[in-house]
Design a protein around this nucleic acid. Structure first.
Length: 262
DNA sequence: AGGACGCCCTGTTCGC
DNA sequence: TGCGAACAGGGCGTCC
């Protein structure tokens, strides 16, 4: 479930571990995550001899600048993550792509369900435009957020999750935002009103920032629905049973007491 | 435009 | 105990 807060946490992890070391070798254990965007040989050639100089995140995408000018692109699908580890430790299970640095350390891109993407691109901004990604959800101000809602009549949940509207929010955090804003998962945008929309905006910012602050550790997310995503789990507000319904084609967890239908 | 649905992908969980 | 179905969910495509 790597969404914006998770990928931001990965970014900080990468920044704290893997920058400014020369890539001595690239291991491609399984090319599925290259998604036909790049040939394995081209990925290896593009990374070997390079250093990761810096990184930036847009929504759920992470980009690392190479000193040669290109960028390493990483998307994590639903199970992807990074692990930086010592020379003699075992390669983590489900490592798909790994960078071996000249200091002996490794950076593993791990994705058990292979739904992510690893590639090399020359320009993140062009990539964002080509993919049709909207602005990063955490970089949005109120005016821009309100403008994105204009004319939209669908569910708030699917709107928040639509990466072309804004980038970064997925199923888990859209549920969380609606839970904390006390809105039913099927609430529609026109039913919000100006005050309701503002409430969603403020809750969105708060939820994303708080998740980042605790490095997405569910055990530290007090008051969050995240650690209670399961039918019959106790609601963190009222202790009533959490329910699951389909909304926007995804399983959606919510508290029927705290989030009554409008 | 919006929404339901299927597919990709595979480890884990659950029901019989 | 074992086996298959359901589920997890980001992203994409299709159809109504």
């Amino acid at each position: 479930m790597p969404e914006l807060p998770d990928v931001e946490t990965y970014k900080r992890y990468l920044d704290a571990t893997a920058l400014h070391q020369r890539v001595a070798r690239v291991r491609i254990e399984d090319a599925t995550v290259l998604q036909d965007a790049i040939e394995p040989q081209a990925l290896a050639a593009g990374l070997t001899g390079q250093q990761l100089e810096s990184s930036r995140r847009h929504g759920k995408h992470l980009f690392a600048a190479l000193d040669g000018g290109d960028w390493l692109l990483m998307h994590f699908g639903m199970t992807g993550r990074l692990q930086y580890y010592r020379a003699h430790d075992a390669m983590p299970d489900y490592t798909q792509v790994q960078l071996d640095f000249d200091n002996g350390y490794h950076l593993a891109y791990i994705a058990p369900r292979k739904l992510g993407e690893v590639a090399i691109i020359d320009d993140p901004d062009a990539f964002i435009t080509e993919q049709g990604l909207g602005p990063d959800a955490l970089g949005l101000g109120w005016d821009a957020f309100a403008a994105l809602a204009e004319g939209r009549r669908g569910m708030v949940k699917t709107w928040l999750m639509d990466q072309e509207t804004m980038a970064g929010i997925g199923n888990v955090y859209s549920d969380e935002i609606l839970f904390q804003a006390r809105l039913h998962p099927k609430t529609r945008l026109p039913d919000l009103g100006q005050a309701g929309l503002q409430q969603v905006f403020e809750t969105m910012r708060q939820v994303l920032q708080q998740a980042i602050d605790v490095q997405c550790d569910p055990q530290r997310m007090s008051g969050f629905l995240v650690p209670h995503r399961g039918e019959g789990e106790p609601c963190p507000r009222c202790a009533g049973p959490i329910e699951r319904i389909q909304a926007g084609g995804r399983g959606s967890y919510y508290c029927p007491r705290c989030q009554p239908a409008a």
